[in-house]
Amino acid sequence: MSHTPEKAFVPLNIAVLTVSDTRTPETDTSGDTLVERLTEAGHTLADRDIVRDDIYALRARVSQWIADVDTQVVILTGGTGFSHRDSTPEAIAPLLDKQIEGFGELFRQISYEEIGTSTIQSRALGGLANGTLIFCLPGSTGACRTGWDRIIKEQLDARHRPCNFVGTLQRALEVRQAEQG
């Protein structure tokens, strides 16, 4: 019987961005949920911010983190619905080098169990930009719990089999650090 050595947990640097015209640091329960869960899992909060639902403000803030070699993951909450102000997918999609098609599909499948057909109004999105993993979740605290607990947490854990994103992020970090000299 062959035994594969157990992989060690690798803490990642994760930034959290709340997209909202109304939330403040005191009322940002979705951002709080994500920070609580990522730190409980053993990851490091790299940064946290709240940005109004504006395509260019979103792109500017996320672009800063994409360019920062120390930020490996960005999780956004909010702006994924269909109101006239919801613009997270439009802001983030052009920044992505590769989309994770299965993320939005799986998020909606899991959400269907919780909220039924209302899940079709979620435009959850995931992708990779300059070696930085990006996940865009709806703004509700429940959606953040669902996204983290049922999808993101395992994909950011090197011990999860058969695959996860940690190896991809580590290789991307090595390339980015070599390029910066």
Rank of each mutant, 00 (worst) to 15 (best):
I110M: 09
K7G: 05
T22K: 11
T71R: 07
S118L: 13
R48T: 11
L133S: 03
Q180V: 12
P162V: 07
E6Q: 14
R59F: 01
Q64I: 07
T22S: 15
F135T: 00
T168D: 10
A60F: 06
R48M: 06
F9Q: 02
T33P: 06
T117V: 12
A46L: 03
T44Q: 14
A124W: 00
K153R: 15
G139N: 13
P138G: 06
E6F: 05
S2P: 13
P138L: 12
D157Q: 05
R171F: 10
Y56N: 15
G42L: 00
A129T: 00
R85K: 14
S30W: 08
D32N: 13
T33H: 06
I14W: 04
S122H: 05
F82M: 14
G102Y: 13
R123S: 03
L156W: 07
I50Q: 11
I100E: 02
R161D: 12
T22G: 10
R23P: 09
T132I: 07
L58P: 10
C136M: 05
V74N: 02
Q121G: 14
Y112T: 10
T80I: 08
E174H: 11
I152E: 04
A172N: 08
A57K: 12
T80E: 09
G181P: 09
D21H: 10
Y112G: 02
T71F: 02
R123D: 00
S140T: 15
